[in-house]
Simulated scan of single mutants.
Amino acid sequence: MPATRATAPPGETAAQPGSGTVATALLAACHPLPAAAVTLFTAVLAAATGRGTAGCAASAGAVALGQLSVGWSNDRADMRRDRLTGRPDKPLAAGAVAPGTVSAAAVVALALCVPLSLASGWLAGAVHLCAVAAAWAYNLWLKRTLASWLPYALAFGLLPAFVTLGLPGQPWPPLWLGAAAALLGAGAHFANVLPDIADDLATGVTGLPQRLGARGSAAMAALLVLGSAAALVLGPPGPVTPYGWGLLALTAAVLLATGRGRGRAPFLGTLAVAAADVTLLLARGAGTA
């Protein structure tokens, strides 16, 4: 973690930045890597289930807007804590963008997310908006509770349903797919929190990972991500393919290699496993629906 304090004191912002600087700061504040990963996962799943070009664009666009709103609201909610712990890598904490600008961006993204979600049908749209609401609940409250893992599991677990409910006949996804997504989301939560546990505890954030500590959270993240891969490989009917066995072996190897790492290594390892999962889903094609 950066040892230096942010340059702007709480409640103030740095000198007025130019429009290009504001755009760059907003991009950094939206948590671009996980936002892009979740959006890509949605697009691939939509393509695999036969949503078509328009369906893929609508579902991926809705998820992208939802992720933007969640990322911006997360940094806005964490602004005071990020300043107290010295996070110049956070645009709000460093004064690179005004709090009102980030708040407005989050609200606008959320407002645009509603009609685009409903473009996939009222049931699919309602499911996705429930997932977004769970993520906002994490940002505003649940991250400080023992249920901090629940919004991640719920939001990720509902994502396949958002995609398949947009198909003709509004089919629900198979149970194994929802379980794999929920386990992956919960595992990502434990892995993502690892670098910030000490700062979180110092500022009163006592979610489940913080209470388990770094070692316990790393172990929980590994078990959940491995469980996600197992559900994806062993859940579908029929024999396990060579790629499936390879995915399980790859997951175990990646978790072993990154589980003892520092900083963002465990989270990046989780993203690598997710990319392998996406490849398997794409190979299965319409069989996921």
Rank of each mutant, 00 (worst) to 15 (best):
S69I: 01
Q170V: 09
P10M: 14
G216D: 08
A37W: 14
G187A: 04
A48S: 03
R260E: 04
A231G: 00
D82P: 11
A198E: 02
L165Q: 06
R215A: 12
D277I: 03
V205W: 00
A191V: 08
T49D: 03
P236A: 11
F156K: 09
D199T: 08
E12S: 14
N139E: 02
V254M: 14
V132T: 15
G166C: 13
T85W: 13
G50T: 08
V254Q: 09
A28I: 09
A219K: 03
A119K: 11
L118A: 00
L268D: 09
A111M: 15
A109S: 13
G86L: 11
P115W: 15
A181Q: 00
A104G: 15
L223W: 14
V132F: 10
S59G: 08
P209L: 00
V114K: 00
T24C: 09
A202Y: 12
A253C: 12
L183H: 06
R76M: 12
A202M: 13
L177P: 09
L175Q: 14
L110P: 00
Y243E: 04
L234T: 02
S148Y: 00
W136Y: 01
G157W: 01
T270P: 03
S103W: 14
L140W: 05
A249G: 04
L116G: 04
P266H: 02
T258W: 09
F156T: 05
G187Q: 10
L175R: 13
G55A: 03
G71Q: 06
G263D: 02
G204I: 14
D196M: 13
L158Q: 04
G269H: 11
A188M: 14
A274E: 10
R144Q: 03
G207R: 00
F162I: 08
S103G: 07
W136L: 10
L33N: 02
A275G: 15
H128E: 11
W72M: 10
A124K: 01
G95V: 13
D75R: 15
